[in-house]
Design a protein around this nucleic acid. Structure first.
Length: 846
RNA sequence: GCCCGAGUGGCGGAAUUGGUAUACGCGCACGACUUAAAAUCGUGUCUCGUAAGGGAUGUGGGUUCGAUUCCCACCUCGGGCACCA
């Protein structure tokens, strides 16, 4: 047998796999050729990773981590008899390519082609079992035709609408900026957002934008999380983002104008008796409407202008709270009937609740603001902790918790929870309040004044207004332009192409103009997993038949829960996508479900996350730091199998971990060790060398169990650790049977597919190891006959004894007390208690 | 500021439901093999102590027979915060 040569082996098998198309998913294959029932369709497994953005820098070692993880799961599923779909594509619209085009004048289409070619070549060199026959690209007109088509369905159902929104605007470059392109810089008067390119202070501008009404789905997006199998922190992230709160809307009447009222939303109506002022968001419409009555209007106007240009994160930061009173305006607290002042402050956000809050001593932000501006405060909630109460009463400390009401008229003595419904009922009987549920979630701003995105398929007609592009005219293709800069008026570069812009109205055939806004990058990625089911379909985004097969299991999947009707079996992606992308695609999917275009109410049954790979020393890998590792170099020097094993071994899959080129050698040594064992096995070619009961066979079966279970939990690092232990023992052993070695190769094959395939074929197998059967472990062989029991005295380990697996508690305790060390330690002391934990320990308390 | 995650040897990390802290790997030291080197194999490797024994899982408290694990407070780092993907 020849020496292990990763270069030869890896390219050889990649070519063979590709030629035979062994990783191509088949639509509705039969169970097996010999299956009696003709209708028996093979069960499917649909594993998904987030398709990459093909950046100009090429792949870096962080990209493959999730691909390898899901590849291991997909490969295991194939051996378990599933028909596996594991697809990939390119999420290729977006800012970096466009900015590159602006800078260099190169056509983004050509740049995208070049970048995705590089990515494809690099990913292929890693031996990931992707089905390349279903590759998609969001910038392909054949793909974005359907992204546009789905938008038209939103429009048809009234879920796409236009609204005035503020955008970041650079007055020097005359272009709209993404939040990312606005950097915070210190100026003379504090922090300010400036343009990343030119450093000019960024302004906010009002602009008509296309919106998608995701808030119409807020309740379902929240509730249906109960029925999906996401990691708990992902569900929590989604829930926090949607931000459902149940509370009340309360009206504060304006003293001077009893017909006018300011509505506030609160979840803590129990604190209303301590409310001494109300606070409006600077953008609140009341301020403009009532400006003639505001005595200090000039100052107020100046304040509002300042605040509007501050980034939102900045505005809500604790240290930066500012405010101004609306002099001459007072409202009435409906509970106390007292007149109270009205303030404006930057920490109140216009798009949450009603854009106004009532303020009292039981909210930290209100409390701090009142202290800062000497606004009177009152307290009305008594803490459970009496010692704290003095300080709270004296306003030395802010108490935000729940408690018992006082200073609250007829509600005195009730707990916060008891008081809330009663106060709402009381106030609503005077029509000053109503129960209300609000969401933090806001509608989705869907317009971009950019070039490199899907054109929004709408035509503006002078007479007919907004007219959707007829479906037969889709796709509305992106025209070529000379200049990728947005126009001076803040429109997309498309606005300059009069030939493209000026069209006939599809309805009245009169003069009309195309919409020149494009869609955000999120659009194409909101439905891409559906396209993989039927990637080449020209008539629909995917056929119902294919969607039904790939999204709904023939038998209940272990991934499925509660009222969930199916979806992608397992979707793994980055932690950084667990709110936005995940929520957006759930929204699109639910919408399509309502139109009966997809068969399931949720897109993904199971969602897990992977951590990032950081540079050496735990800092971010970035071009500017010069610490980016290119997988090409690793594949060349150590091989794809080594890279795969190393990336899975380096740390827990869901956590970020620092790269270490020095440590790769450990993975390589492990692979070489397995190779050497292969040489030994081939030399002796012993099919029955080991006794069925030998310690090595027992270890093999324990390892099969451990690896099988660890893969399901994505604990790839401990799976590899256990295989390393097995390899060390196999190498030490005088003889390893072919049969046992093959089982080891099979469980290792998802991690190191090339070298295991080579060894498999050297052992005389004709078919691919990737199409063999996942080995089963023998329960009888993994049970230990003798068990080590630790003896503790007062919780400290003092000795250990070995007992038979079936030994009784009495007998073990007796042995423990007879132990020499134990006798020495308990001499002259009373044994108070003995705690026995089965198969683990005896703790003697003295 | 708000939400989520993490903090364990020189380094990456392991540790079922609260039950032997430091598995596995890297590095380092010593030894075997070799004319030599590489590769490989073996031994050792948290810390103080000759030992008996003590101490240590970001910090400080608490619950428990027993805490890396549960509770409270705090510190540090990473991710997200709606136009980056």
């Amino acid at each position: 047998m020849k020496e292990y040569n990763h270069l030869k082996i890896e390219s050889k098998w990649q070519t063979i796999w590709d030629k035979n198309g062994i990783y191509y998913a088949k639509d509705f294959p039969r169970q097996s050729a010999s299956s009696l029932s003709k209708s028996a369709i093979k069960p499917k497994f649909y594993g998904l990773i987030e398709f990459p953005y093909p950046s100009g820098d090429g792949l870096h070692v962080g990209h493959p981590r999730p691909y390898i993880g899901m590849d291991i799961i997909s490969r295991k599923r194939r051996l378990e008899g599933f028909n596996v779909l594991y697809p990939i594509g390119w999420d290729a619209f977006g800012l970096p390519t466009e900015n590159f085009a602006i800078k260099t004048g190169k056509d983004p289409r050509i740049v995208t082609k070049k970048n995705s070619d590089t990515f494809r070549r690099q990913i292929k060199s890693l031996g990931i079992s992707f089905d390349w026959s279903r590759e998609i690209n969001t910038t392909d007109p054949k793909y974005y035709k359907w992204t546009q088509w789905i938008f038209l369905q939103f429009l048809k159902k009234g879920l796409a609408y236009k609204a005035k929104m503020t955008i970041n605007w650079c007055p020097k470059d005359k272009i709209g900026l993404a939040n990312e392109e606005v950097v915070t810089r210190s100026t003379g008067s504090g922090q300010a957002g400036v343009c990343e390119r030119c450093g000019t202070a960024v302004e906010k501008r009002e602009k008509e934008q296309w919106m998608l009404a995701i808030t119409k789905y807020a309740d379902r997006l929240y509730k249906d999380l109960d029925d999906v199998n996401y990691l708990p922190q992902i569900k929590l992230g989604q829930r926090n983002w949607i931000g459902k709160s149940e509370g009340a809307e309360i009206e504060f009447k304006v003293s001077a104008r009893q017909d006018l009222a300011i509505k506030v939303f609160t979840t803590r109506v129990d604190t209303i008796f301590s409310c001494t002022f109300i606070v409006l968001a600077p953008e609140h419409s009341f301020i403009q409407e009532y400006k003639n009555s505001i005595l200090n209007w000039n100052e107020v106007e100046k304040y509002i202008k300042e605040v509007k240009n501050r980034p939102e994160v900045e505005r809500t930061a604790e240290s930066n709270k500012t405010g101004i009173e609306l002099k001459g305006v007072r409202v009435i607290n409906p509970a106390t009937k007292e007149e109270i002042p009205v303030w404006v402050s930057d920490f109140v956000l216009v798009h949450y609740g009603t854009g106004a809050v009532f303020a009292d001593a039981h909210d930290k932000r209100d409390f701090d603001m009142a202290k800062k501006y000497n606004i009177p405060l009152k307290v009305s909630i008594k803490s459970k902790d009496e010692s704290l109460f003095e300080k709270i009463k004296n306003m030395e400390e802010c108490y935000e918790g729940e408690g018992v009401l006082f200073n609250s008229k007829q509600f005195d003595g009730l707990t916060s929870a008891e008081a809330r419904p009663k106060i709402i009922d009381w106030l609503s009987s005077e029509s000053a309040a109503s129960r209300k549920t609000t969401f933090k979630l806001r509608d989705w701003i869907f317009s971009r004044q950019r070039y490199w995105g899907e054109p929004i398929p709408v035509i503006h007609c002078q007479d007919c207004g907004v007219v959707p592009v007829p479906e037969k005219d889709l796709p509305v293709e992106l025209p070529k332009v000379k200049n990728y800069q947005p126009t001076d008026s803040g429109e997309s570069p498309l606005a300059n192409i009069s030939k493209w812009v000026n069209v006939k109205c599809p309805k009245c055939l009169g003069k009309a103009k195309r919409e020149t806004d494009t869609m955000p990058n999120w659009a194409g990625s909101s439905w891409y997993y559906l396209r993989y089911a039927d990637a080449k379909n020209n008539k629909e985004f995917a056929s119902k038949k294919n969607l039904k097969y790939w999204l709904t299991s023939p038998q209940p999947s272990p991934e499925r829960r509660g009222g969930n009707t199916g979806g992608v079996d397992w979707y793994n992606g980055g932690n950084e996508h667990t709110t936005l992308h995940l929520l957006y695609s759930r929204f699109w999917h639910k919408f399509l479900f309502d139109l009966k275009l997809v068969p399931t109410n949720e897109p993904y049954m199971k969602r897990t996350s992977h951590g990032m790979i950081l540079g050496e020393g735990g800092v971010k890998m970035s071009k500017s730091l010069g610490n980016v590792i290119n997988p090409d170099d690793i594949v060349k020097t150590y091989g794809a199998d080594t890279l795969r094993v190393y990336e899975m071994f380096m740390g827990p899959f869901d956590q970020s971990v620092a790269w270490s080129t020095e440590s790769i050698i450990g993975a390589r040594r492990f692979i070489e060790k397995v190779w050497r064992i292969g040489e030994k096995v081939l030399k002796f070619n012993n099919s029955s060398g080991m006794s069925k009961n030998s310690p090595l066979v027992r270890l093999l079966h324990k390892t099969i169990k451990k690896v099988s279970e660890d893969i399901e939990g994505m604990n790839f690092n401990t799976a590899i650790s256990s295989m390393m232990i097995l390899a060390t023992e196999m190498e030490k052993a005088e003889n390893v049977s072919v049969e046992d070695y093959k089982k080891f190769l099979q469980v290792l094959s998802p991690f190191a597919p090339h070298m295991t395939e080579e060894l498999w074929s050297l052992l005389g197998e004709k078919d691919s190891i990737n199409l063999s059967n996942w080995p089963k472990w023998d329960e009888n062989l993994i049970k230990d006959e003798e068990i080590k029991i630790v003896i503790q005295i007062n919780g400290k380990v003092r000795a250990e004894i070995f007992v038979q697996a079936d030994e009784t508690e009495e007998s073990i305790k007796k042995k423990a007390l007879e132990n020499e060390t134990v006798v020495r330690h308990i001499a002259g002391k009373d044994v108070k208690k003995m705690i026995y934990v089965k198969n683990r320990l005896v703790n003697i308390v003295i």
